[in-house]
Structures are given as C-alpha cells and as structure tokens.
C-alpha cells in the first residue's frame, strides 16, 4: 500500500503520516515513511510518504504508484495527482492557500481544480476546516482529514483510535478523537 500525504508546510502532514505508519506497524506490516524537514517546511509544498506491506524497500512512493493520495489543500492535490495509480483514490481537504507566487500576483491560482481532479480520479472531498471549527478547535483539521482517509486505507476504527491516543499530546486526545470520528463518519 502506497500512501502520499501532501500539503503546505505547517499543516500537519508529518503527524498524519506518522499516525498512518504507526497504525500499519501495529497491524504487523513492514512500514517505511519518508518525511520533509528543514527549510522546505517553511510554508512550502511538503510531501510525505507511507508505504506498508510484507516487505518494503524504498521509503518513497514513485510517480504513478500511489493508492491513496491525501491532500490538505486543493493546489497541492493538483500538483501531485500524477503520483496516483490509475485506480488510486484521492482525498482532498477543500481549502485554498495561496502560494506567495499568487499573493504577489506573479501567478494565478488555477480555477476548477476539484472538477478537473474529479474527471480523472476517484475523489473524496471534505471541508475539514469548517468541521474543526464546529468542533471548537481549528488545529484538528489534519485529524478530520485523517478520519476520512482512514476509511479508505483500511484497519479498524479502534486500531486507528489506539494510535491516535498514543501519538497526540494527552491533553488533546479527546478533541482529536472527536475530529477523527467526524472525518471517519463522513
């Protein structure tokens, strides 16, 4: 299983991929993850990979090999869609963050991203920002997205929640559980 998590630096892609990786490990699979640290994290386009199976060699997913692509932002979904397999699925958090090239007017933010993606891929969208706001904590956006993604990756809800409990800060277990369920039941 090849999973790719993309987004904008600071959105929590790293934590999301780590939770996926730990859940797969607990289920007995060989697991590898690849992360991005350093300068690229500063508001740039970030990519993490999670691969699990009987035996995993490289820690990255190759273009054209991804089963589940999770994107925290629309433009990033467009940027990395070619990593998907023909029957791969895509989960997109329906939000827009303008890159600096757009803010300063050098480039325009593409229109109709979701329509284009939907015409080519099996696409699931979610407005995790709104859901998180309703839950009263805008910081759990990534957990809402994870909840929706979890259903398409496999494992039981309990397996996911166990990893979540062991990964997020103790004080935030309750709100993260709610956020996960909100995404999972979507």
């Amino acid at each position: 299983m090849n999973i790719m998590v993309v987004g904008v630096g600071g959105q929590g892609t790293l934590l999301t991929s780590r939770i996926i990786g730990k859940t797969a490990l607990n289920a007995g699979w060989d697991v590898k993850l690849s992360e991005v640290h350093g300068m690229a994290q500063r508001g740039g386009s970030v990519v993490t990979f999670v691969r699990f199976g009987k035996k995993v060699y490289e820690p990255v997913c190759e273009e054209g090999s991804v089963d589940v692509l999770i994107s925290f932002e629309r433009l990033e979904a467009l940027r990395y869609a070619h990593f998907l397999k023909p029957d791969g699925i895509m989960i997109v958090n329906d939000t827009r963050i303008d890159p600096m090239t757009v803010v300063i007017g050098a480039k325009t933010y593409p229109e109709g991203i979701l329509e284009k993606l939907e015409s080519e891929h099996k696409l699931y969208t979610i407005n995790a920002g709104e859901i998180a706001k309703e839950l009263g904590n805008s910081k759990v956006v990534n957990t809402v997205v994870l909840g929706l993604s979890a259903k398409h990756i496999g494992f039981t809800e309990d397996e996911w929640l166990e990893t979540l409990r062991n990964t997020v800060p103790p004080k935030t277990v309750e709100i993260n559980t709610l956020a996960f369920k909100a995404g999972y039941e979507k």
Partner: peptide, 14 residues
C-alpha cells in the same frame, strides 16, 4: 505515467 503532471504555480518556502 497514467496521468500527466499538471501545471501548478510553484509553492516555494517562505
């Protein structure tokens, strides 16, 4: 590749 790489404005670190 099954899908072509889309044109997307760059998002460099800031």
């Amino acid at each position: 590749l099954a899908f072509e790489k889309a044109e997307a404005p760059a998002r460099p670190p800031i």
